[in-house]
Design a protein around this nucleic acid. Sequence first.
DNA 1: ATTGCCGGGCCGGACAGTACAGGATAGGGA
DNA 2: TCCCTATCCTGTACTGTCCGGCCCGGCAAT
Lengths: 348, 348
Amino acid sequence: MKVTDHIHIKDDSRIPKYQQIVDGIIENISSGQLKIDDKIPSINALSEHFLLSRDTVEKAYNILKDRKVITSVKGKGFYITRTKLISKVNVLFLINKLSSYKMRIYNSFVSRLGGNSHTDLHIYHCDESLFLNLLTKNSMAYDYYVIMPHFKTSALHHISSTDEVLRALGKIPESKLIIMDNDLQQLPGTYAEVYQDFEGDIYTALTQGLEKIKNYRRIIMAYPARSVYPYPKRILHGFRRFCVENKLPFEVIDEIYDDTVMHDGDLFITIEESDLVSLVKQVRDKGMVLGEDIGIISYNDTPLKDLLGITVISTDFDQMGRSAAELILEKRVEKVKNPFRLIERESL
Amino acid sequence: MKVTDHIHIKDDSRIPKYQQIVDGIIENISSGQLKIDDKIPSINALSEHFLLSRDTVEKAYNILKDRKVITSVKGKGFYITRTKLISKVNVLFLINKLSSYKMRIYNSFVSRLGGNSHTDLHIYHCDESLFLNLLTKNSMAYDYYVIMPHFKTSALHHISSTDEVLRALGKIPESKLIIMDNDLQQLPGTYAEVYQDFEGDIYTALTQGLEKIKNYRRIIMAYPARSVYPYPKRILHGFRRFCVENKLPFEVIDEIYDDTVMHDGDLFITIEESDLVSLVKQVRDKGMVLGEDIGIISYNDTPLKDLLGITVISTDFDQMGRSAAELILEKRVEKVKNPFRLIERESL
DNA sequence: ATTGCCGGGCCGGACAGTACAGGATAGGGA
DNA sequence: TCCCTATCCTGTACTGTCCGGCCCGGCAAT
């Protein structure tokens, strides 16, 4: 028995022939005659059997492939991949590392996208080759690719690997790509984006609090430079620009240790939570008062920082996830800047 | 015994046959059945054994040769040359939801496992069908499956879907399975596990602080029952048992609202961070003092709770990830109870 | 009425990948 | 020598993929 015997299409001149083929396959699936992983007739076989042009069958199969009902394997044939015909939106959410902030972005993204979707989260640990692996392995299998590009800023300036990343990203259809968090100036084309303007954001946020900041004698930023997960250098640039333009004495240190020297009138800007913790502990140990003797501005807000009265400069993580989801839901291709602001609390 | 008996290839019509041969050899290497310098079947032997064209086998062997997995010696045969690069451990890390605690477990797991490994993180949002999908789709592709089984406790008691979950888990080879966090009493077999004894843990931790707890007039637990992400009911059981056995008046509420009534001498146990936040805010608004008028014990520790002086009962998340990684690294099949303890701070 | 445009349908060709069936050659080992 | 080995070769036949061109009918603007 030939495979083509399974397929039945009824000729109705009112509807296009390729549509009849599509409906025929769908019907054979829903009636249970075609099951998952079954092979369906080749283009040649079907076109000869029903006296159709090869092109017509090809068109029908392409529609089914776009709907992800069937998959094609070059040189072998077409195979049924899905029997449930509800079309879920599949998203690949690719992030460099898993922090509580990234987590909030992911969660708000998923909940805004709603139930008729599935998003896979993958983490590439700032590793270029792992990033490329994940992207090539999962290439073309998703409807959307939400990507946060953050890589190790190698001192050796490996042009090759950065180029490879850009080439891999270029292979993704622009309509399916959403760049998050870190905007890539080197990537050409018109794709969607929800970005932080790291340099400008910190500059304007600090400027907003300039009057209070002026009361401090020195500003010290704890910028984790030696971390395996680098933060954008532009944070530093923005901070420096703010200090220089306002003629404020400043300093940049790697980390806040238990014995980091601090004086009355110091204002600390912390990025890592661990630095914040050891800083607050030290301030308490020395009997100093936050917001009077020592000032703290922390990067990235959390509810518990609110309780602690820590002044923060922060982007809106939930908004970032929502924005990305809405770009997908509304099929918009825009570059959206995520809101960033200074939230003044007792520690400043 | 013929050499060909070692090689197993599974016939999947979608995948090209030469690729199946390649995968089969790789699998035999990574499972340790084929070691370095071993001879693999000749082209003729394999083609006859599996009724394949010689050309197909040749193609597969050429791919392996290009990848430098095997070397050919004219007139002799093919020999395995590399096993190191292939023996990268692949892990599927399957969790119900993404919280900051799960994140810490994941991060400590990955860092303990080290560089010669790759772990994919997937989230099934407490959804049984999604869980089954992820498991069947990725079946047999990983070396280890680290799974946190938490599902919606449906009031309707869908035996069917629970059964399906157990059957799906049963299909995973016991040596590859590590159950985390929530122990499944219903799952038979000897598999590895790192579990919390939710009922016993909270009972003993609270008993540890009994003297201080006795000073409070009433104990109120905020247990989020209506959440889409349910917490194990055994937390409640353990709490109730503690209260009943010590003859302490208690109460269980869903959530802490802005207008939740609270009296002098109330001790709150919070699970969700949002409950903790609104509770602390209320206490402050009413001019009450934490640890004197109102007590708080929070579930799950974080560095910022330490700063806030919040007494916690908590498992050691970092340890949990480390334990799971060590079970894999040392190839141990044991059931490990994760440490749980009461950390007394000012709020009690 | 003519024109341009678009989509359905058809035709055939070029290309690449899969799989098979051989044959020819050179080397290894007993 | 004989049998097995890898290697390279030419075919054949099928597969999906992509291309340009063709016809036709409907549809809207000129």
